[in-house]
Simulated scan of single mutants.
Amino acid sequence: MITYQPTADLHVSAEITYKNMRSYYEHYSVNWEQSKIQAQIVDLENWDILYNSSIVGAIRLAFDNNECYIRDIQVSDKFQNKGIGASALAECERLAIKTGVNLLRLRVFKISPAYQLYTRNGFVIDKEEDRFFYLSRQISNQEI
Rank of each mutant, 00 (worst) to 15 (best):
I16W: 02
T119I: 15
N52I: 10
F109K: 10
I97F: 02
Y4H: 05
R137L: 04
T3D: 13
Y28C: 08
Y24K: 07
Q5T: 14
G122N: 06
F63S: 02
N46P: 00
R120P: 02
D130Q: 14
Y118H: 09
E128N: 04
F132L: 13
F109M: 11
S29V: 12
T3A: 12
Y69R: 09
Y134M: 08
A14N: 07
P113R: 14
I55N: 03
N65Q: 12
K127S: 13
A8D: 03
L44S: 05
E26Y: 07
A96G: 04
I16Q: 02
K19H: 07
Q74M: 08
A62H: 12
K36C: 05
H11L: 15
K78E: 12
A39F: 07
E15L: 09
N65K: 15
A58P: 00
S140N: 13
Q138E: 14
Y134T: 05
I139C: 04
N20R: 12
K110M: 01
R94Q: 11
R94E: 01
S112Q: 07
G83W: 01
E93M: 07
K36I: 08
E91A: 06
E129I: 12
E33F: 02
A114V: 08
K36V: 09
N121K: 07
L95Y: 01
A88Y: 02
M1K: 12
Y118A: 06
D126F: 02
T17Y: 01
A39G: 00
I2S: 00
T7M: 11
H27G: 01
N52T: 08
N81F: 13
A14C: 04
T119Y: 04
L135V: 12
E129A: 15
F63Y: 15
K127T: 09
D43P: 01
R60K: 12
S87R: 03
Q116V: 10
V42T: 08
F133R: 10
K98M: 04
F123Y: 15
